[in-house]
Design a binder for these strands. Structure first.
Length: 757
DNA sequence: GGCCGGGGCATTTTT
DNA sequence: TGCCCCGGCC
């Protein structure tokens, strides 16, 4: 471990070693933030702190997974697993399930995704006979989400004069009532939406001081990643769990706070030192990613923001080239220019396609680049769009799973009660909803005993409902006695879902079948990986709990395939590319039209541009068009004000691209000292070697297996056995996989073959 | 229940 | 311009 510490720079090391009280680590772009977090945790573990006492919160599953696997390499797999490390949402849902008896929910509550909540709101607005032009479901949803993130319950909302007055003022006086109904409906349905996972955790701690104390005592060390993205609820929960002397370490970069629109509060990080007056401040200011010019250009840009924590980010890489600014006549030409540059650079500089990314402000911009790339046969991939779990066929199956776990789940029930078609129409569903609402019970209660609630339906409909009910009962029974895999299989078979899909021979139909197969195989993988961990019972609920909080942002399969990447700047956060094109740098597009009223929003847009610039390792191109097709008509455009915010000495501005000033020659004509391999890479290798797990009973060989053999695992691919431990039932192999880090496999369950070198 | 056409609308997105 | 949603019609 001492050796590890040598691998850190001074400020990183200081941040890692300070654990005596609250600390704020300002981590500039590319400054080795994740490494500080992982080393810090590894250091704690090394010093005898139990993983059980460490709470590490991240925003995405991907971040949590990466950190976990790095820690597994430095400590060991089992310890890493016992850490409380994960997203806010997943860890809090774990706590809420555990403490269910104090929450008013059952431990098997299901989770509404954004679409479900919107559908429910839409239904409520309709039931209340409100005008959905005034009460637009999407904006009501955003509003409710916002107040929840401010920890405002329906009761508090009603009592809040200002909120009520504001709603009257905007002619939407029914919002409080909609919110109340929504909350109650979720409660009777036994479901939580994403915001509820935070809100109810806060309320749990708030209303039960002894529970709060228990967790506060348990989590003696708390780490929060991407603190600039926390919303008020997250901030407050962290406060509930800490004292002013607590060892809490928050890591983030105020300059990269770009999610205020979904509730993130940059004040959390800016005012951290007011919240914890005793806290220490560490700054990671060396950027290991980008050339000096890129870093300096980005600095000069972000300097124009008022609200920020002072810092001096620097790079010791080569100076690099000045940043070309390219002006195109039209959006179409912008596409051709970028595509042409990529082709050219690939030839001249021997880059691969995957070294390029095109970053834009809005998804709508992607189409033109798509067409331009396709025209000259450049392979590309667009990030974003419909995620795997949002596809209809997947949501249908998941809805059935949700019903087997929680038959009162309203949105799941509405989704599949007539799919595949069973002749149960809207009228019937509406009657069920109305009956359930008047009796204040879940939909399933009504469905299970229609007579008791005087459900007004004819005998034909009653029969149809009966047969649906039987299906769900049967599936629920399977879910009770068998594992998640069997349940999944039964769902596909018994409901006739797959049959329905097989009939469709169109390409879309085939891809739907493939998606279902993929879901089934992920179910399989889930069950078998839990088995390998030695867990015997794996219920459908366990699977749901995991995937409800998952997105396929997380599945970065094909990450090494060779294609150009296109994405919004927002989704590029945290990533890096050798060459970056930032396109559409025009007023009203970037900064977006909507951000213009408010200087704070402009600052956020500027941070967004900062994020874009700092994705690049070697080269950045900035492009804008003079004319652009927007909303059906061609508009002439003005170059973005942000171009003027970058110190001109770092830009290369040709005459035709002049914006605001007269063109000048670039100040650096790039003496090309090729970037040396970063210290970073060698470090990582070192880190990997030094950390074989300390396990109890070690063997040189078990059966045909020997330490040092290479194997190929069904899911994790190739890897080397680094240790063999345990006896018989508990025999395990520790395998260092080429692409998945170190894993312990329970030999009884693990599926792999021995391969030759 | 599915298909077609009109109207409205048009940042950013993870959990 | 293009997409999505809704409502009407078969």
């Amino acid at each position: 471990m001492e050796a590890f510490l040598q691998q850190l720079n001074e400020s990183q090391r200081e941040a890692v070693l300070y654990n005596e009280g609250p600390s704020l680590v300002i981590a500039g772009a590319g400054s080795g933030k994740t490494r500080v977090l992982t080393y810090k945790i590894a250091w704690m573990l090394q010093n005898g702190i139990s993983p059980y006492n460490i709470l590490a919160l991240t925003f995405t599953n991907k971040a949590a997974r990466e950190m976990k696997s790095r820690i597994a390499r430095m400590a060991d797999e089992d310890t890493a697993r016992r850490l409380w490390m994960g997203t806010f949402h997943s860890l809090f849902s774990r706590i809420l399930r555990r403490e269910a008896e104090h929450t008013g929910f059952r431990s098997d509550f299901t989770i509404y995704d954004a679409q479900d909540s919107k559908n429910l709101l839409k239904a409520i607005i309709k039931e209340k006979q409100l005008d959905d032009k005034v009460y637009k479901p999407a904006s009501i949803q955003a509003h409710i989400s916002k107040v929840k993130n401010e920890l405002i319950t329906p009761e508090r909302y009603l009592a809040d004069k200002e909120l009520i007055e504001y709603d009257n003022f905007t002619h939407k006086p029914a919002i409080a009532d909609i919110y109340m109904t929504y909350r109650n409906r979720c409660k009777t349905a036994g479901v939580m939406d994403f915001d509820d996972l935070l809100l109810y955790t806060y309320l749990l701690f708030d209303e039960n001081p002894e529970i709060k104390a228990r967790y506060r005592n348990q989590f003696r060390f708390i780490l929060v990643d991407e603190y600039q993205d926390t919303n008020s609820a997250q901030h407050e929960i962290v406060r509930q769990l800490t004292t002013e002397q607590h060892s809490i370490c928050v890591v983030g970069d105020d300059a990269q706070s770009i999610y205020s629109f979904r509730g993130a509060n940059i004040g959390n990080i800016l005012d951290f030192r007011k919240t914890y007056p005793e806290s220490k401040l560490f700054k990671l200011e060396q950027n290991y990613r980008s050339t000096q010019i890129i870093v300096k250009a980005a600095n000069s840009l972000i300097d124009k923001n008022k609200e920020q924590i002072p810092k001096h980010i620097y790079s010791r890489k080569s100076p690099g080239d000045a940043i070309p600014v390219i002006c195109a006549y039209s959006d179409l030409e912008e596409g051709y220019i970028v595509a042409g540059r990529i082709a050219e650079m690939r030839m001249i500089r021997h880059c691969e396609y995957k070294d390029f990314v095109i970053l834009y402000r809005t998804n709508a911009q992607s189409r033109i680049f798509e067409e331009a790339l396709r025209k000259i046969n450049i392979p590309y991939r667009i990030y974003g769009g419909l995620s795997f779990y949002q596809r209809k066929e997947i949501k249908d199956i998941i809805a059935y799973m949700r019903l087997t776990v929680n038959p009162n789940d309203e949105e799941a029930l509405k989704r599949v009660i007539n799919y595949p078609a069973r002749g149960i129409g809207d009228t019937t569903v509406n009657k069920i909803v109305a009956t359930a609402t008047t009796h204040n019970v879940g939909l399933w209660e009504v469905l299970a005993d229609p007579l008791k609630y005087n459900l007004n339906i004819n005998s034909g409909t009653a029969k149809k409902l009966e047969s649906f009910r039987k299906i769900i009962y049967r599936l629920a029974e399977i879910a009770l006695t068998q594992d998640a895999c069997e349940t999944g299989r039964a769902i596909v078979k018994e409901t006739g879902l797959l049959g329905e899909l097989y009939e469709d021979r169109t390409p879309e139909g085939l891809s739907r079948v493939q998606n279902v197969e993929e879901l089934m195989s992920s179910l399989n993988a889930f069950v078998s990986s839990r088995r390998e961990e030695g867990i015997r019972e794996i219920s459908t609920g366990d699977f749901l709990a995991e995937i409800s909080l998952l997105t396929d942002q997380d599945t970065d399969k094909n990450a090494h395939a060779d294609w150009v990447t296109m994405m919004t700047i927002h989704s590029a956060k945290g990533l890096e590319f050798k060459n970056v094109f930032i396109v559409g740098l025009e007023e009203q597009l970037f900064p977006s039209e909507r951000s213009m009223q408010n200087p704070r929003n402009i600052e956020e847009e500027r941070r967004l541009f900062y994020v874009a610039l700092t994705r690049a390792e070697e080269t950045v191109f900035l492009t804008y068009a003079r004319n652009r097709f927007r909303n059906g008509q061609s508009q002439s455009c003005v170059p973005s004000r942000f171009l003027k915010d970058i110190d001109r000495q770092y830009l290369h501005i040709p005459a035709d691209a002049a914006f605001g000033h007269s063109p000048v020659q670039p100040s650096f004509s790039a003496p090309h000292s090729q970037t040396k391999p970063e210290r970073y890479t060698s470090l990582r290798k070192l880190a990997r070697e030094e950390n074989e797990p300390d396990v109890t009973v070690q063997h040189q060989s078990i059966g045909p297996l020997q330490v040092g053999y290479r194997i190929r695992h069904e899911r994790f691919g190739a890897g080397k056995i680094t240790a063999l431990t345990g006896e018989n039932e508990n025999a395990k192999a520790v395998v260092l996989f080429d692409n998945f880090g170190s894993k312990q496999l329970l030999l009884k369950f693990a599926r792999f073959e021995i391969i030759k070198e």
